[in-house]
């Protein structure tokens, strides 16, 4: 069985928890699994991204440069890149 190894970009304020690493490759096939993997490696990071079982309401998830509406449920592929950014509204 091949493992899916997407790249998770760490928001700058959370890099104090990843030893300064700006991106981490994890074994995960969804955003939820990616956050679980991050939490296993960097305890406490999940709370910064999530509120309960959901991504915090003011954080947007981008997968491969496109906004994710499924958020935690979004599937990831081998080459996927995941970004967490503060939500932005337009006029």
């Amino acid at each position: 069985m091949t493992k899916t190894m997407p790249t998770i970009f760490i928001p700058t304020p959370l890099r104090e928890m990843t030893g300064g690493k700006a991106s981490v490759v994890v074994s995960a096939s969804s955003v939820r699994e990616a956050i679980q993997s991050l939490e296993a490696e960097f305890p406490g990071i999940r709370d910064r991204l999530c509120e309960g079982n959901h991504i915090r309401p003011n954080i947007s998830v981008f997968v491969d440069g496109q906004v994710s509406h499924l958020k935690m449920r979004e599937k990831l592929s081998e080459k996927s890149e995941v970004h967490f950014v503060i939500a932005i509204s337009g006029g």
């Binding site: 928001p11 700058t12 304020p13 959370l14 890099r15 700006a22 709370d47 910064r48 991204l49 915090r56 954080i59 503060i86």
Partner: peptide, 19 residues
């Protein structure tokens, strides 16, 4: 600060950083 709340009353609602 990206999911971490300060502890004292303030006028600074948010602090953000990209690098």
């Amino acid at each position: 600060e990206f999911g971490k709340k300060g502890e004292t009353p303030t006028n600074i609602a948010g602090h953000y950083k990209d690098a």
